[in-house]
Write a protein that binds this DNA or RNA. Sequence first.
DNA 1: CACCAGGCGATCT
DNA 2: AGATCGCATGGT
Length: 293
Amino acid sequence: MTIQKTVYPTVTASADNVGSYVEFKRPEYFDIYKIFDCGQTFRFDPYDDGIAGVACGMYLYFVQSDDKIRIYGCEENDFYSSLAPYLGLDRDYGKINEDIFAHFPTGVIQEAESVSRGIRILTQPLWETLCSFIISQNNNIPRIKKIIASLSAECGNKIECFDGQIRYDFPSAEQLLLCGEDGLKELKTGFRAKYLIDCAEKWQAGTFDGFDTLSYIDAKERLLTVKGIGEKVANCVLLFAGEKYNAFPVDVWIKKVIDKYYDGNLDITSLGDYAGIAQQYLFYYERYVKADT
DNA sequence: CACCAGGCGATCT
DNA sequence: AGATCGCATGGT
């Protein structure tokens, strides 16, 4: 798949009374409130003048103004090696949107993109994304966030934060297995506990070695071998961790969108290489509109 | 009390 | 292939 690319921004490192930070010119399509609140990650929450959470093994605090993005808790070298790729800062969303508009029927997608402008699809770690979206099944976002937070606090490594507090990284497969099925149930994962165990065992057995070299079809087939991963979760993992931007997860919200704006009929196979990004616009739009009405 | 939530597996026909 | 049901838990 051809990805529309641009260059990483240049950052300056500095510090104030809050802590040390890196700062860069705010890209044209970049809104932290949308990026971290659109349902692709469950580890970020409002914090003082912005949003904070755990990613790339760091506790990060994002503050944005009209023309700057500031990130506390990240050194300059970590920014270029892990954070910029995670944030997808080399992707040209102007070009991506052109491709989306060329493939989707004109109408709600333009409106959805306008409302959602600033969303970027993060490139998240495979293991954490697998578990997060197994947990997401038949569940709601606030509760998914709670479960992932308690799972991390119970089983994950400590992270020393810029504000002097301790947060916790998402547990490894080994740490999750150490917790065990009963332990996972105590953490309110319910019927999903056995799915997480199956996923961890397959992870340890090497089922996902070389995953990022697979095609969309082969990667999805691999995902579907895990108990508790079906069509929808597989597409979420492909989109949010696998850089397969044609993956188009259909959940209850997207079903509603298809019924409401496409007369219950949308040919998912003809939506182009960035259908998944459009899906995220539609998902965010429908939830945003509902919250507003 | 129902019904729902970024669904899936089992069990039917 | 497609339809139905149970599933853990917490919120409305």
